[in-house]
Design a protein around this nucleic acid. Sequence first.
RNA 1: GCUGAAGUGGUGGAAUUGGUAGACACGUUGGACUUAAAAUCCAAUGGCCAUUAUGGCCGUGCGGGUUCAAGUCCCGCCUUCAGUACCA
Length: 1001
Amino acid sequence: MKHYYIERLTFYSVVIRLNLQLYCRIKTMRYDFNTIEKKWQDYWASHQTFKAENNSEKPKYYVLDMFPYPSGAGLHVGHPLGYIASDIYARYKRHKGFNVLHPQGYDSFGLPAEQYAIQTGQHPAITTEENIKTYRRQLDQIGFSFDWSREVRTSDPSYYKWTQWIFIQLFESWYNNNTNKAEPVSSLIEQFQTSGNEHIDAACDEDTPLFSAKEWQDFSAVQKQEMLLKYRLTYLAETEVNWCPALGTVLANDEIVNGVSERGGHPVVRKKMTQWSMRISAYAERLIQGLDTIDWTDSLKETQRNWIGKSVGASVTFKVKGHDELIEVFTTRPDTIFGVSFMTLAPEHELVARITTAEQKEAVEAYVEATAKRSERDRMADVKTISGVFTGAYAEHPFTKELIPIWIGDYVLASYGTGAVMAVPCGDQRDYDFAKHFGIDIPNIFEGVDISEEAFADKEHTVIANSDFLNGLGYKKAVKRAIEQLEQIGQGKGKTNYRLRDAVFSRQRYWGEPFPVYYKEGMPQMIDAKHLPLTLPEVEKYLPTETGEPPLGNARVWAWDTETNTVVDNDLIDHKTIFPLELNTMPGWAGSSQYFNRYMDPHNTEEIFSKQAIDYWQQVDLYIGGSEHATGHLLYARFWEKFMFDRGYVPVDEFAKKLINQGMILGTSAFLYEVTLDGKSLNIFVSSDLIEGHEYIDSQHPKWSELIKLYEARGLKKEDYDNKSKIRLIHCDVSYVNSSDELDEEGFKKWRPEFKNADFITNSEGVFKVKRDVEKMSKSKYNVVNPDQICEQYGADSLRLYEMFLGPLEQYKPWNTAGISGVHSFLKKLWKLFMDDNGLKVNASEPNKDNLKTLHKTIKKVEEDIENFSFNTSVSTFMIAVNELTAQKCSSRAILEPLLVVISPYAPHIAEELWSQLGHKESIAYAAFPKFDEAHLVESTKTYPISFNGKMRFTLELSLDLSKEDIEAAVLSDDKTKAQLQGRTPKKVIVVPGKIVNIVG
RNA sequence: GCUGAAGUGGUGGAAUUGGUAGACACGUUGGACUUAAAAUCCAAUGGCCAUUAUGGCCGUGCGGGUUCAAGUCCCGCCUUCAGUACCA
């Protein structure tokens, strides 16, 4: 028995093997994308095909993607969109003879890994490593031409060593407003030493006192450090921050969306804390100016301009009556100074408590307290309510010396300008509303303008009146004059104000870069750069300590020994040689603000990058990424690059010459209509075509007889459900829905077992349909499409082509997997152009005129498309080319070989395979892009559209040699023209040679 | 409110400086091949009217305008999306 069994097995295995051999033979002739793609991905990896050299005869080109945060969910089809576009561009540039740098890495510090660590105890480094593996596998299978030998990870100590190094450089620098650049702190100390700080124009803290050289010399060491800290480009300061209790950390303004945290949507409150800050405000003007020198989209530049928020105007000081106090305000309309009828201070303004009169004390205090309690979000949500209190104090008008009541109101923000405004109700709608509400005077200082209904804010048509020396002047002249006069009496000057605030740089987090900082007598000290990196310590818990310190407070070994320059046990802190280390870590944007430069020389252990490398690569030539980073990463990175430029580390002060924002690929969500009663599920679902337009169940409706039967079967009475039973939408995983929107009931029930006994009411054809809607692709909406499955089923080349084919790169567009069959069958047709059942069918035959025309118009169009980033139209062009060449039965090597090079940036795997089938031993990646030859497109005739009164009626083929007159004669003598005219004489004939003929009759 | 982008078939989208609107696909319908299915191939496919056929009218968010000719330019609106918001 046993013997027989083995014999049978052997027999079968021989049969199977024979079949397999036959199958494989056929298979080599077919477009077997899975095998081909794996083969070439392995080839590229083992041959390091895309390794960029730091010295090359070729011109350089640097194509960069925004590196991903490796999240646990992996990639969905929306993620690679920008990577595919940049990869096409990078491959194209290689064909064009450039030495292309196209690196990739990971922005691997961040909140999600830490949140996961808090929940599970899993070290973030482990989670991160696992996620990176998944990302790498997914990226590899799409066939990107990344130079992986240059990979960086922000959480890698060999990388963050240089993030720490830059921090030290910033600490050792100050911003000189005279030279308009950052300079070493040593130059500042020299000036203090010789002449104090009175004559220094620097970006510094507002509360910096003036001191003389003598005073400086007399300062203690700690006092000197305190003073210097007010000038450093990164500094410690007590700042009001956005504190997120749920996340236990501080958030930057751009990490808050609609008053809640961007990640997780948790509430955010204002809180005072000592934090590291970055003096980005020093660069506000240069960040605006620099925008004119770079090729970024207008909308992105506009977003950055708005964020920086430059406004030009004047600062004016008002004396407070009866106090030795001054109120400084910022105004963009100094021309309206004679229209001031009150002043408003922010409730948080420091003068409020000092100037409030005894009578008003109670009301003012109550108001201040009430505002403090209201969260930022409440204040934002409630813009319409006007509130405020009179302080009882008066200011003196700088010119008229009239008394101006001082109010407080929450429409004035403490964080903008000086936190105080001179209110001109006739010229500003908010001041107007406030004045109306509290019955304050609204003097009119505009000539010929009615202000009985609303304020007049039109600068263009302003003519000033009732304003002494400003009478009769227009806006511009009045502003100039007002500033001159204010300067003369010493109560104001021209001033430019920026909305941009310094960036808080501390996070109360574990999974981030440690600061290279220890504290001696309470003052921060930098660890010498040669001892970096200061690596993250191990902790038992990733939560804040019991005393409320950041997670690093849990580290047992986290103190700095200045004798040995090593990290030692906390217990050893003696404040003589061993000092406590900083417990905060750096924010997410630290690691991403210089990574583009590190790619140029990623393994350098001596420097952040060599001079030779940065001089060669200079800056990113093309940067592709999402527009959501407009006011975060893209602003901070520009700031750091300018700083690095000032200090002589980089040769240019903008890091990315050109930037493109790719749009988002949206998911097509599926929804089920679920019937509910009193908010509870009735376990009944209704096909979407029965429901459209209804919110409640109505027993009168004939469509719902089946549903009504179900109600009755369940013993529900008509009066219980009629017009009460409501319909709601629930998300359904898109994998249980086919392309006709029909639901796989069994699959759905398995996925959501709580509905396993649910009733599904089908439409009149007996089919259950879901509702479709386009939304952001996300796990929680169950509309995610995984690229792994697409690659498996259609191949990476199909995925690449399809993502490009969907529409313009910058646009938002919905994903629809069904459509991929179009590009997939294009690839099969392409394959068939080269291969038939017997193998390669390409030969040395002479190409004919049509072949050449097809090839050259394709070369021309694709080249233009790539230069214009119009990748979608290229894919159509390929389809047209292959359709035409197939119809022409073209098998000429002279046509098909160059065609392959043109297609290869888009579909590199199939291009490589066919290229090697053509007998090439080297990769196609560096083959020269074919040269376009206009000669092949020259035509002798043109099919003219013949229009009558602008409407095209028919076409006529005419020689292009004909003159205008010849064309007119030829057209007019044509029978079809005569038929159109029916004997009438045309009034006019427009002939545009080579374009169109229009007959006006 | 302000700023920016965009409105074209059933769907995604083409249309270089004003010059044949709807390329290229998806989907749909019909056909070929097949025992059948898949795959592949062929044909039709903006709407309406008409037909024996070569036809006719309307049509790029809406209303005007410029022009021999407008999706494209100008004026006035509407809608959608994104960003931003008491910024003095």
